[in-house]
Design a protein around this nucleic acid. Structure first.
Lengths: 215, 215, 215, 215
DNA sequence: ATGTAAACGAGACGGTACGTCCAGTCTTGAA
DNA sequence: TTCAAGACTGGACGTACCGTCTCGTTTACAT
């Protein structure tokens, strides 16, 4: 009988965590993340307090603290769960076309309320290193890798110069978008993003267009 | 004696408002700004509280609130008074050389403790629009104008392409620096800044080097 | 197999109410009471939390709540199970001797860590009437009855005055001990208890009123 | 001039503490103490929370914490300010009459809502030693001294036996009242108090020992 | 010389949110 | 049916700063 039980467990849970105790309330989890995001979108970081999130989600503060160690972690989780999936990468075969298309979309999204969420995360990241790390490892790094993959495909294809530094290039393409997202000197929109990217690309392309590019 | 005083003031400050009452304590003013800056440099925005600044400056909270309306305003004032002057613009006759030299210096400064101050200001700016405005009007805009002047001189001199958009170009050159300042994905140093700028310039120069530049 | 189990239980407990399901874990019960008492002895009421008791007993909180409705009930149960039995009543034939001997022992016990437990129960009783009731009915009342029996035997024997009020007399003898137990104005020890009791037995007045006093 | 200023201050404030900063708000202080007392009277210790007191007094929690280090300290202060003054000592020339009159009044007061306050303080004192100390030094000790003074006057006058121990006697007279205040076995009223006191004064033994007992 | 008016230090005040501790309840799987 | 485990709602805790306020004191000019 002991054997049977053992076998059963082994069979039933090849990767299952053998849950014990009351299972986590998924509805609460979802409500918290949704609320966190909504508050950041509507009020920005100024109105983003754990108490406000708890109240809006109809949840006790302790439930939030049980699962997320800090405001920043919660903001990041909400962002990843709710809005990050909206921004993916295209793949058409042209590095320039793909990236410009992606930058346009990113500009459009970051220029809207999602930008407020991301700005809040970066602001919070200035006071809490863990938040910054969560942002870097959970969002920035993977997306940079995706961008670098497109760039390096372009290099191999002969579309882009062979001597470009991928990291620096990603910085050059995305840094301006973040700056405009954080600093409302001027609107952050797809048109500007395309113009900006064209400035950059004109220097990255191996063979330059004979006729001066359109800005 | 009355006449003398009047004359003196009239001479020294033709538009002075004939101050009444105890004059502002310049030592206190200086101590406050120095303390604000020092705290931001040492602790970052997390440790930057009005009470901490007051305590460090040996000053009453009221004295701070009398002159600066908010935390962000104080941070900005401290930054402008203490560290902003350190970063000026060169003028050698070559837009590319001038800008790269400037970008190297900026990278070096923003990569150090001054960067922490600026990052704190931008973070605070996310919650307080007035702080953001103060940063934009008091720091960002004038410096962008200086950068644009160099660029446009380069255009007129024929060094740079005529069709570049100055605003977008400034974004492209400085955005990446700000991003690295805010996000410690990778160090922010002059070497990287130069490499990054070269990537950008290779596309901005009217006549490109025949052999691909070495970054 | 079901039948077997049933039969076995039925056989083992001929007068049992035909219990169904898992039987109560007596070891857990004992561990809980022991832990409750130990915590009260060591930390006093301040450290006495259901969670602490559960942790120390190696038991789930639910198991405690299943059997005891409140903190006070648990404290009382622990006290009755562990330490109350230690204090019984003697019976030598002299009310005065018996009571003084008993008061000495009570003072000694209440002056030690058992006193902390009892003090905690009375404190908890101030916020929860059920705890107070449990203390009164489960401990105080029966012991008062025992004391009254000794007193009334003394009266019948002619050792004590006939006009004494038993309830008031018990209050007079035990009230001071409780006061010293609760208020560390001065130590609670057998020597003091004997002196105090002698005052009560002998009275305070230099000359006794000839006619029995009116109560 | 310096001398003048010094003289003036010295003259004006023989005992004044040379106030600095905004003076304490006496209205807030009074409201807090009043509220603390009222809550203890109405709800007992169970409803006595700092937040409730603050809310009722229309005062910020911080204002309470600024002046009283703990719940117990606040309760004690409220008690001393509001209700303690009501219970004073008489002085008629007879120890027995004075004490019985006083015990009747104390029983009457402790049997009412003031008793709930005092019971709460003693309960809180079981978890916080500072509260206990405050009770002892601020209330119990001085009142015991007053009682002892009456007793010792009675001794000198020849009304009371010369060999009584004053401390033990006070315990005997007041201990029962406290016990009934804390434990609602039976009502605490003046009639009972008088009967109880008479037992003490007269003694329990039918025949008194000829030679004064040795305690 | 004295009076007026602003600046300053000190610090109390009403508040908001923090992050934590426990209470007491609930939900699951195993015994 | 009990038990262990542990997630849940909820109330209060004591703390840190906020931005405002009320003082007594200081300083410089104006009379």
């Amino acid at each position: 009988m002991i054997d049977l039980a053992k076998k059963k467990r082994a069979a039933a849970t090849p990767a299952a965590p053998a849950r014990l105790g009351r299972p986590r309330d998924e509805a609460a989890r979802a409500a918290i993340l949704r609320s966190a995001n909504a508050i950041l979108e509507e009020k920005g970081i100024g109105g983003f307090t754990i108490e406000a999130v708890a109240a809006r989600a109809g949840v006790a503060k302790t439930t939030i603290y049980r699962w997320w160690p800090s405001k920043g972690a919660l903001a990041m989780a909400g962002f990843l769960a709710e809005t990050a999936p909206k921004i993916s990468y295209p793949n058409s075969g042209s590095a320039r076309a793909d990236l410009i298309s992606q930058l346009r979309r990113v500009a459009s999204v970051y220029g809207g309320k999602t930008g407020r969420v991301l700005a809040a995360i970066l602001a919070e990241g200035q006071r809490d290193p863990n938040t910054m790390t969560a942002y870097i490892e959970g969002y920035a790094r993977p997306r940079r890798e995706a961008a670098k993959a497109i760039l390096s495909a372009g290099v191999e294809r002969g579309e882009l110069r062979a001597d470009i530094d991928l990291e620096a290039t990603v910085d050059v393409l995305y840094g301006p978008i973040y700056y405009r997202m954080l600093v409302p000197l001027a609107p952050l929109d797809p048109k500007w993003a395309e113009k900006m990217a064209n400035h950059v690309f004109a220097g990255l392309l191996k063979s330059r267009p004979t006729s001066p590019k359109r800005s």
